[in-house]
Design a protein around this nucleic acid. Sequence first.
DNA 1: ATTTCTTTTTCTTTGTACGCCATGAGGGAA
DNA 2: TTCCCTCATGGCGTACAAAGAAAAAGAAAT
Lengths: 111, 111
Amino acid sequence: MAYKEKEIEKIYYSIGEVAEIFDVAPSLIRFWESEFDLIQPKKNRKGNRQFTKEDIDHVRTIYHLVKEKGFTLQGAKEMLRNDAHSVRDKMDLLDSLKKVRQFLVQVREKL
Amino acid sequence: MAYKEKEIEKIYYSIGEVAEIFDVAPSLIRFWESEFDLIQPKKNRKGNRQFTKEDIDHVRTIYHLVKEKGFTLQGAKEMLRNDAHSVRDKMDLLDSLKKVRQFLVQVREKL
DNA sequence: ATTTCTTTTTCTTTGTACGCCATGAGGGAA
DNA sequence: TTCCCTCATGGCGTACAAAGAAAAAGAAAT
């Protein structure tokens, strides 16, 4: 299982691999990179992008805002202006609040 | 000041007045009405839209999500799926959280 | 007060600019 | 062959804006 171990511990991921993770085209990853400062993968001397897990997590944040939450690119940029790291957590908190409210509404309806 | 009193207590507002409030074109208000169930102003028998203050507040919610927060129309619709009333409040809470975090980061930097 | 003319506001339908990518050319490295 | 690069161009749908017609509201004159 040495190979598998190596896979798990892989440091860099190609743009094709990243694209596959999110089921999007590589061109979209490149486009987002051109739009968002948050995405800045290293490039080897050949020019190929090398994504770390952290880079991929940044892509995940963009994906979350744009594809799941429905922000425009401009809106996503605004969201990222202050705090890039915890935006996803806060959006999830927002969802939690909505769920809590939903629950309370149901409780009230029972009374 | 009877006239002014009457103005203040006005019940219905025209689409032009509503558009002016948000500094947008009347056509945009009509378009939003066609897109969002939340906006459903009464129409007189001539067909002219008559917006109550509550209707205007619904427009304000759409404006907030689309023009200030940067949601796509689809994203805004998703936000409104569960709870139309308190979305604005929650988004403001989100902003508050961001401000609190910003403050804490600054405090940490001082140490 | 009423008629006439002009401007404003509204309506629905149709048109369109731009955001958000996708595709293609032309090429390099493994 | 396959995956990657840059740069240019293409294209589809979103998000409105414009066009055209009709009604209403002023304004001027009688």
